[in-house]
């Protein structure tokens, strides 16, 4: 899996070595994301996957409603903008009709684990041969920092101002653990986007998730634990520390299911 380094390593017309550049699958549109947000990182990783597996000509991506609602502006391949939570159903419609296309959804935790939980679980249960790139930042970012089903106990949000109370709103939903019981799932992994090392791990997991679909294994999902400094009320640095110290204790990273070699 080294084709992504295809151009880095080559030389520019000026004779300079190219060591880093934007994936071809990404547009020139500047991101609208807040400082310290990792949607940009995750988008880039998606772009890298499309380049690496040479999927530009046959990819159909499905965008969520949430902070990544404009994702279609940042990529160069075909996309469908779904309504809130329905991306797995939309992706199912595309993939069932065009099984040779690479079809993925990109969804946040409000979209995937709150309003869209039914679509998520049923797409997974059917073993729908799609790839889900899931961003879990434990909060509704775009609408102004409301509590998500993934918010930690005690987490202060604009709708849990004294901190999330489990007696009132229950415990955080752990999507990977929840989906682990479903036989249709081919790949499940969780990783915090909190360091270069973890980002490399995320890239590895995403590769596995893409391969699952290309090899017809079934439903694959990568959950990226992401910072939301603005809505968490932290500096970007503190938000990263918060992920490594608090978030991973509730949402342990790792591969939950990997049927690539089955």
């Amino acid at each position: 899996m080294s084709t992504i380094i295809e151009r880095p390593g080559t030389q520019t017309p000026e004779g300079l070595n190219c060591v880093f550049e934007k994936p071809r699958a990404m547009s020139d549109k500047p991101f609208h994301y807040c400082p310290g947000c990792s949607h940009g990182t995750y988008h880039r990783l998606v772009g890298e996957m499309i380049d690496e597996f040479d999927l530009m000509s046959r990819t159909v991506g499905v965008c969520p409603v949430g902070c990544a609602v404009f994702a279609y502006e940042y990529f160069e391949f075909d996309m469908v903008e779904a309504s809130h939570g329905r991306a797995p159903a939309v992706a199912t419609g595309v993939k069932r009709c065009l099984p040779d296309r690479f079809v993925f959804t990109y969804q946040g935790d409000g979209d995937l684990a709150s309003i869209g939980m039914a679509e998520t679980i049923h797409a997974a249960a059917r073993g729908e041969n799609i790839t889900v790139f899931f961003v879990n930042n434990g909060i509704f970012g775009m609408t102004g920092g409301q509590m998500a089903p993934t918010s930690l106990i005690g987490q202060k949000t604009t709708t849990s101002q004294a901190g999330r109370d489990p007696m009132l709103t229950g415990q955080p939903i752990k999507v990977c653990e929840l989906l682990s019981s479903l036989d249709g799932v081919a790949y499940l992994a969780r990783v915090p986007l909190s360091s270069p090392k973890n980002i490399k791990t995320c890239r590895k997991y995403m590769r596995n998730a893409v391969r699952c679909q290309l090899e017809g294994k079934g439903f694959a999902l990568v959950e990226a634990l992401s910072p939301c400094p603005v809505q968490w009320g932290m500096t970007p640095g503190d938000a990263i520390d918060y992920i490594d110290e608090k978030v991973v204790k509730v949402f342990p990273p790792g591969e939950f299911i990997n049927k690539l070699n089955d």
């Binding site: 159909v60 329905r86 159903a89 069932r96 065009l98 039914a118």
Partner: peptide, 26 residues
């Protein structure tokens, strides 16, 4: 051709949305 029983009417119409977006008669 494609037939799929969806988990709900909400999912049905969104599967239709995906298939229609992909250019199929759904």
């Amino acid at each position: 051709r494609v037939f799929l029983q969806a988990e709900s009417e909400v999912a049905s119409i969104n599967m239709v949305y995906g298939a229609a977006a992909a250019g199929l008669r759904a």
